[in-house]
Nucleic acid binder design. Structure first.
Length: 270
DNA sequence: CGCTGACCCTGACGGC
DNA sequence: TGCCGTCAGGGTCAGC
């Protein structure tokens, strides 16, 4: 589920219910996630007041005066607000009960997600070395061009590298490359500045559009089922191998780059 | 430093 | 109906 738009949608959804609220209790039912949940997380969080809900890359950050809770949703994770005393279901690994009505519930079938405690001033290895946010001014075609010189790996793998730019997952990398007319397997170092400028624009466009739609889908997700389906209708290539290209009508092809499927149009992408 | 492949885990799906 | 292989939106790490 979570690409950047979903994480940002989650952030926007939970923020108004978290700000200024005190954490009443934290329950960890399953601590074996991507990294073990810190054993002292519940005691550190209990009683803390949430002062901010931020996002960096695909990490959610719940800020408190004592330190921050950092959450990654991995491949299959979700963080939802559920009404009080709603019984936990399968894969509901962590509950963060808030003062007032609701409980923040972390669910993750595949357990590729993670929870971290960030003490003030402590180094954060997972956040250091991260590239710019894709929707920030620091991210543009010139940045991609400069970093890519001499690199022989595929351009798709390149833009999915968090040191280059964060938050571009398999779906939106595929979509942006199609919209920019760039073959996903082309060597990153052999893409021109002009084409990287187009690519940066399309990455921003596709992410922005998905965030807007995610917001619409999840508007009522407090107590809702939390299952978004916002992107399916607009996908140009992702998940459409063999289907006709929406631009030229030719059959879309598929190849694997770094263990990930990459769908593209041989005619429209070079 | 750059790149490749293995790996973490459950669930859905198609073929037999 | 069940069993098996494959694949899935994430990211880190070892090894070359």
């Amino acid at each position: 589920m979570p690409e950047l738009p979903e994480v940002e949608t989650t952030r926007r959804g939970i923020e108004p219910h978290c700000l200024g609220r005190r954490v009443r209790r934290v329950t960890v039912r399953e601590s074996r996630l991507r990294w073990p949940v810190p054993p002292d997380l519940p005691q550190r969080l209990r009683g803390a007041v949430i002062r901010g809900v931020d996002r960096r890359a695909k990490y959610l950050l719940l800020r408190t005066a004592r330190g921050d809770l950092m959450v990654h949703l991995g491949m299959s994770g979700s963080l939802r607000l559920v009404p009080p005393r709603e019984p936990p279901r399968t894969h509901d690994h962590v509950d963060i009960e808030l003062q007032g009505d609701y409980c923040l519930r972390f669910n993750d079938p595949r357990r590729f997600g993670s929870l971290h405690w960030l003490a003030p001033g402590e180094p954060t290895p997972l956040l250091d070395h991260l590239g710019p946010e894709p929707l920030s001014d620091a991210f543009d075609g010139a940045w991609l061009y400069r970093l890519s010189r001499g690199r022989r790996g595929a351009v798709k793998t390149f833009i999915m590298d968090g040191k280059v730019v964060v938050g571009v997952g398999n779906i939106y990398a595929s979509e942006a490359l199609f919209l920019a007319g760039i073959h996903p397997g082309r060597a990153a170092g052999r893409v021109s500045l002009a084409r990287y400028e187009r690519l940066a624009v399309q990455i921003k466009r596709v992410l922005t559009s998905a965030i807007e739609q995610g917001g619409t889908t999840l508007r009522d997700f407090v107590g809702g089922d939390g299952k978004p389906g916002y992107f399916a209708q607009q996908l140009r290539v992702y998940g459409r191998a063999g289907a006709p290209c929406r631009a030229c009508g030719g059959p879309l092809k598929e190849l694997r780059l770094g263990q990930r499927s990459s769908v593209y149009c041989v005619t429209c992408q070079r």
